[in-house]
């Protein structure tokens, strides 16, 4: 499984620490294939996304770990969707996290049910292909040592 990982060394000015520590986060992409199991139920099979066909579903998973000795607060995760991907409705929900959407390049965000798009002087409800950015706002602080992850799906055009 080929994972693409970047951890940036944190600038810790303003936080008193005995030694350099990191807040790590990484993102991986997997292709979701729906298969019918022997018992007749539909199940999802995940494979690393290296080659993807138009129309396939890609699941992005972002995982984080608070390796600091302090709580992490006001965490906000923001994702600009690649222009070749369409958000798959219903994905991305996470307990205790508010998920917001933008249809204007990240200038403003709202809940999906209230997301409007201006088209030829008329506003209409946004459709999945209008969504340009995703944002998750974490209301609970992240304790030291805590880990978490969330996933969302997008479809390759």
């Amino acid at each position: 499984m080929r994972c693409v990982v970047l951890s940036l060394m944190l600038s810790l000015a303003g936080v008193e620490m005995a030694s350099a520590q990191e807040f790590k986060a990484e993102q991986i992409a997997e292709v979701v294939t729906l298969k019918v199991a022997e018992n007749g139920e539909t199940e999802e099979v995940l494979t690393p996304a290296e080659m993807v066909k138009p129309g396939e579903i890609v699941r992005y998973t972002i995982a984080w770990e608070n390796t600091l000795e302090s709580e992490i607060e006001d965490m906000v995760l923001e994702i600009p969707l690649p222009p070749q991907m369409t958000y798959r409705p219903g994905s991305g929900a996470s307990d205790g996290v508010e998920m917001l959407f933008s249809a204007n390049g990240g200038e403003s965000y709202s809940a999906l049910s209230g997301l409007l798009v201006l088209e030829e002087d008329q506003s209409r409800l946004a459709e999945p292909q209008d969504i340009t950015h995703l944002k998750w706002v974490f209301s609970e602080p992240l304790a030291p040592g805590a880990q978490g992850e969330l996933s969302y799906d997008a479809v390759l055009k």
Binding site: V4, E71, I79, Q84
Partner: peptide, 29 residues
Amino acid sequence: NTFTLTYSVGGTTQPQIDNTGDPTSFTVD
């Protein structure tokens, strides 16, 4: 695909974390 993570510690905003240096990528078949 890139992401940006912003957060604060003790009330102070910290530098953001992102993967723009090595984004999550795949090639279209």
